Simulated scan of single mutants.
Amino acid sequence: MVDHTGTGETGLSGRYAAALYALAFEQKILNDVVDQMAALGRLIQESADLRRLIETPLTDAAKAAPVLTQALAAQGFLPIIRNYVNVVIANRRLRDLPFLIAGFAAYVATKRGEIVADVTSAHALSDTQRHQLRARLTEAGYGNVHLREHTDPSLLGGLVLKIGAKLFDTSLKSRLNRLNYSLKGAA
């Protein structure tokens, strides 16, 4: 069963994350690998061409592996990251790469005693907003929180916060939808 949440320790992403974590720890380059996996995730988000290559089901693994390896080498990614991507490709999991990267981040956060909170807002959070959000989460009993930030202009305002299975939606879009449903019920 594929773990598309990217957070499971027993699913696909958990197995890949545990293997990469153990190898990076053994080679004493764990912090560099954590940073570069995050950079790889950002690279995928920012590059439409790379996303298209990853998401296309007809991508030929034999052709994709050398091209992707060369591109990652040109970007300065460590051999361990390039090898990881090659293993993902060889195992026919290229389409799962973004989930595997998220799973690795969640695995590292768990190992470090951090709680991962996905925050989606209409606009990028300012440093003040980030600080206030962390303070509120600490007050709510969530100690060491790692924020993974996403933007979605369709939210219009407010934010959506997901911590584990809990979802807190204070977006303007959600409020307008609730108001719309309540007005339809009153009519």
Rank of each mutant, 00 (worst) to 15 (best):
L72G: 12
A17R: 05
R92S: 14
E9P: 00
R95K: 14
N31L: 11
L68W: 02
S47F: 08
N83Q: 09
F77M: 12
N83D: 12
T10D: 01
V67Y: 07
D35E: 11
S13L: 01
F25V: 05
A64G: 06
D32P: 00
R82A: 06
I81L: 14
G103F: 09
D35N: 07
L12H: 00
Q45F: 02
Q75T: 08
A24Y: 07
L72F: 11
I101C: 11
S47P: 10
Q36V: 02
R15C: 00
I101W: 11
L53I: 09
F25K: 14
E55C: 03
N83R: 11
R92I: 02
A102C: 03
V85G: 08
P79Y: 07
Y21D: 11
A71F: 12
V33E: 03
I89A: 01
Y84N: 07
N91K: 15
A90E: 15
N91H: 14
E55S: 15
G103E: 11
R15V: 00
A48S: 14
M37F: 03
D49Y: 04
R95G: 15
G14I: 01
K63Y: 03
A22W: 02
I44G: 14
A90M: 02
I54E: 10
R92E: 13
V88M: 09
F77R: 09
V87W: 05
V87T: 12
V67H: 05
Q75I: 03
S47N: 15
D32Y: 00
P79S: 08
L97S: 14
E9T: 06
L30T: 07
R95M: 13
L12I: 08
D35S: 10
D49L: 09
G11C: 00
K28C: 04
G11N: 03
T59G: 02
A74D: 15
D35P: 00
N91D: 11
